[in-house]
Design a binder for these strands. Structure first.
Length: 431
RNA sequence: GCGUCGGUGGUAGAGUGGUCAAUUACAACAGACUGUAAAUCUGUCGCCCUACGGGCUUCGUUGGUUCAAAUCCAACCCGGCGCA
């Protein structure tokens, strides 16, 4: 048991970007230096990585998922372990007052299941992700007037999630059984999972949803937010860890600036410990959408940009006031053979790397920097499991390092200089 | 030597007169992936072109039957098995 409480302190506000800041999130299980990238470990494991690997990537926290852990192994089992951090041994050894080594858990997040409302609902089997392409948007716009859009947006008839005012009915992707999630059950499960920071149950909308739908979904998310706070207060401390948990709201409103503002103001007036920016938008206007949210949120509370992102997203997010990020991309693309490199992402499975004796990274702090591209290429071709491990650790480190470097650049008053030098190289001058 | 079965695209292996440039799998080549139904999914995979169409060359070799052959016939070459 720890007597440390959740809090957030801003150490420095950027002299260059009005909304950007450097800070520290204090949790009962340790601090998170922000801005920070949080690795995703959906089922209480960052896929392909040991806890030691995660530490080598300099990950400060792990984010797990309510829906997945509820289905498997079950929230009660996680709670019996003392929470998911303890279950996965996301902990470090410290010397206590008696000089004895003692294991203490490290910071954790859980997502609420709100993303699955989208990924198993509107997005199910449609090929639409939370970042819409302009082609998808224009095809969708055409659909309303003309049914022959070039990009076909498949409308799914077999969604795995259905929403109503009270909650969401999910069909298990494991065995097809039905499960009911409400704001209250999401809170109960997340209390059992025991993360330091957890999210209100929201509805992540499709980037292709109409403005009318975005409004009604946002308003429902606001009503659910109130129910989440009430249930969280009723539940008190985590049943799994015995610690106080911090509850973050999720700002919605799609790509509409006025809705983002309304959502931020509405949720900002409620008693949340921090805020997630959720939902969807196109790549092009992500920055302004985030800005519309953050500039209307209470300044002194942390903001998390849910499910983002890629290198450029970190620069945009931090510039507009984001403190933490999470994203499955680095580990997912890693398993598919893509690794981040200073000049852009490369596909290590490409034939040109078969005999490439250069190292996968020139950064000696990167967990597996000294393996050759040729070796990693071979591991992928041979379908060896270490391919996923090396690539995942490498990618996570690469992204965590960018955000960490952004943090330092704000402290040094050279944020835009760093952004330019990074993007000039990584994106070949774009951005 | 006799008998018998078989030789198909990088590999395995379908097809046994037209709908076959040839099912399928694997390999190969490339692409996608943003709060993880994802160690997944998609595309290409004989050659050439003015490429949602057209031309050319392919199913051991050679010759033949037929309007039409990977598919039928003959000879030959090669391989497995059986008997000498």
């Amino acid at each position: 048991m720890s007597n440390k409480k959740f809090s957030f302190e801003i150490d420095k506000k950027s002299n260059e970007a009005p909304l950007a800041r450097v800070g520290v999130i204090h949790t009962p299980h340790g601090d998170i230096q922000t801005p920070a990238f949080i690795p995703v470990g959906t089922k209480a494991t960052v896929k392909a990585l040991s806890v030691e690997d995660i530490k080598k990537t300099l990950g400060q926290a792990v984010l797990a998922n309510t829906y997945h852990l509820y289905l498997q192994p079950g929230a009660d089992i996680v709670a019996s372990h003392g929470g998911f951090a303890k279950m996965m041994h996301w902990e470090s050894e410290i010397k206590n007052e008696d000089g004895q080594l003692e294991k203490v858990c490290l910071p954790t997040f859980t997502d609420s299941g709100g993303f699955q409302v989208f990924s198993l609902g509107a997005a199910y089997d449609t090929g639409v992700s939370k970042i819409a392409t302009s082609a998808q948007l224009s095809a969708k716009q055409k659909q309303t007037t003309d049914d022959k859009g070039e990009v076909k947006i498949k409308s799914s008839k077999t969604q795995m999630a259905r929403i109503d005012e009270d909650g969401v009915t999910f069909k298990s992707f494991i065995n097809g059984s039905y499960h009911r999630f409400t704001p209250e059950t999401s809170m109960q499960i997340q209390h059992a999972l025991g993360a330091d920071i957890f999210f209100a149950f929201d509805e992540c909308t499709s980037p292709l949803a109409s403005r009318e739908y975005q409004i009604s979904a946002m308003q429902r998310t606001h009503r659910w937010a109130k129910r989440c706070i009430d249930e969280h207060k009723r539940l008190g401390i985590s049943s799994a860890t015995g610690e106080q948990q911090a509850l973050f709201a999720v700002v919605q409103g799609g790509a509409f600036d006025d809705l983002r503002k309304e959502s931020a103001e509405t949720l900002g007036a409620m008693d949340f410990d921090g805020f997630g920016i959720g939902g969807s938008f196109t790549k092009e206007d992500m920055g302004k959408t985030v800005k519309s949210a953050t500039e209307n949120l209470p300044e002194g509370k942390p903001r998390h940009l849910l499910g983002i992102g890629e290198p450029i997203d970190f620069f945009l997010g931090v510039e507009y006031g984001i403190d933490t990020f999470d994203c499955v991309s680095p580990t997912r693309v890693a398993r598919h053979g893509n690794i981040y490199a200073p000049d852009g992402k490369i596909n290590i499975t490409n034939a040109k790397y078969k005999n490439d004796m250069s190292q996968i990274s020139n950064d000696e702090s990167s967990p597996y920097y000294n393996y050759t591209k040729s070796y990693l290429h071979h591991l992928f071709k041979a379908e060896e499991m270490m391919a996923a491990t090396i690539a995942s650790a490498h990618n996570l480190y690469f992204l965590i390092k960018i955000v960490s470097d952004i943090r330092q650049s704000i402290l040094d008053d050279r944020f835009f200089e760093f952004k330019k030098s990074f993007c000039d190289r990584y994106y070949n001058g774009k951005y």
